[in-house]
Computed example of a mutant assay.
Amino acid sequence: MNDTIVAGILGLLEGLTEFLPVSSTGHILLAGHFLGFHSTGKAFEVVIQLGAILAILWVYGARLIHVFASAPQDPAARRFITAVLVAFLPAVVIGVLAHDFIKTVLFETPKLIAIMLIVGGVILLFVDHMKLKVKYDDAMGLPVATALKIGFIQCLAMIPGVSRSGSTIVGAMLLGVSKRAAAEFSFFLSIPTMTGAFAYDLYKNRDALSSDDLGLIVVGFIAAFIAAVAVVHWLLGYVSRHGYALFGWWRIIVGTVALIALMLGH
């Protein structure tokens, strides 16, 4: 299959899955493996996440501008900004220290990705059915200490197949955040986290990327942006009504099918 078409398919897959607790990285790495797609330094899989970041800014732009504009006078706005930045810090430290291991070992292990999809699906189903006491129903009102704990839990997603949104959502729910607010805080935390991953990965691969790589990244980026805007609009309403069970079962099915295919030598 033509690499440009594959890049578009992977971009759509990235946008559709980035904010769902199903592991977008796991999905596109497995899809790339079975489609025979190989990117320079696995940069494509990280850099196209910028399309998903811009989708969040597109949907929440006015709200975020208001928060930053009111921050000098509003303690609640300052607390929200601080909470997101503090939650982001663990990913900065661990991501920089473990970057090469993540990209050269974990990203190159399809069987691990499939197993983590299944394990994460089981955990998501279990937590979704727990009767958890809700202490926080506003994503912009989380205590800084709670946000920091969510930030540490987010670092589990450096193992492909775990899911950044999945780990933050499950962690937030276990800490007393409502299902809707957990998803929304995951959206906000994705902005610095994914921007940092994008910038650092682009820097690390700056000498290896060619014009062909950049062309594929642009295709994937556009596809990811379009798909992610649709998902962000839909997700909050869905999880408020139905929870996360659908995504748990999806993870288990995809992981099982991928694991069987890998065991059969594909």
Rank of each mutant, 00 (worst) to 15 (best):
K42V: 14
V105I: 14
I81K: 09
P75K: 01
R78M: 08
L54G: 04
S39W: 04
I123D: 00
W58N: 11
I53D: 01
A77I: 13
A87F: 04
A91L: 06
F101C: 06
S39I: 05
T104Y: 13
H38P: 01
P90A: 00
H33M: 03
V67A: 05
I118A: 01
Q73A: 13
I65N: 07
I113L: 05
A69S: 08
A77K: 07
V93Q: 05
T82C: 15
F34D: 02
K111G: 10
I81D: 08
H38E: 14
F68E: 00
S70N: 08
T40A: 12
Y60N: 06
T40N: 08
L106C: 05
P72R: 07
H33T: 02
T109Q: 12
I81M: 13
V93A: 12
V84K: 01
V92Q: 00
E108F: 12
A52H: 12
T109M: 13
L64N: 06
I113V: 15
A52K: 09
V86S: 09
K111S: 14
I81N: 08
A98Q: 04
L106G: 04
D74S: 10
P90R: 00
I118L: 03
F107S: 03
R63T: 11
F68K: 02
L35N: 01
H38I: 11
G41A: 08
R78C: 05
F88M: 05
L85P: 07
H66A: 15
D74G: 06
Y60C: 08
V67E: 02
G51I: 11
A69C: 08
A71C: 06
V119I: 15
L64Q: 08
V59W: 02
H38K: 14
V86C: 11
A76M: 09
H99Q: 13
L89C: 07
E45K: 03
A76Q: 14
A83G: 12
A87W: 02
V122S: 05
A87Q: 01
D74K: 06
A52W: 11
T104H: 15
G36R: 12
A43E: 13
P72K: 09
I81S: 09
K42D: 14
V119H: 05
M116P: 02
L50C: 08
I65T: 14
L117Y: 03
L112C: 12
A91D: 00
I115L: 09
V67K: 04
V96A: 10
L89T: 10
L35Q: 02
A55V: 10
V122H: 05
A76K: 14
W58H: 14
I56T: 07
A76P: 03
K42F: 15
V46E: 09
V92S: 00
P90G: 00
A55M: 09
V105R: 15
T109A: 15
G121W: 04
I94E: 00
F37G: 07
A43Q: 14
G41Y: 07
L57P: 06
A83V: 10
E45Y: 10
I65D: 04
S70E: 06
L89I: 10
P72T: 07
V46N: 08
L35G: 01
K103G: 01
F44L: 10
V92N: 00
V96T: 10
I65V: 15
T40G: 09
A69K: 11
V96P: 01
A76I: 07
F101W: 15
I56L: 15
F34C: 04
S39M: 06
F80G: 11
V59Q: 02
F37K: 09
L50P: 04
L64T: 06
I123Q: 00
A71V: 05
R63F: 05
I81Y: 11
V46I: 15
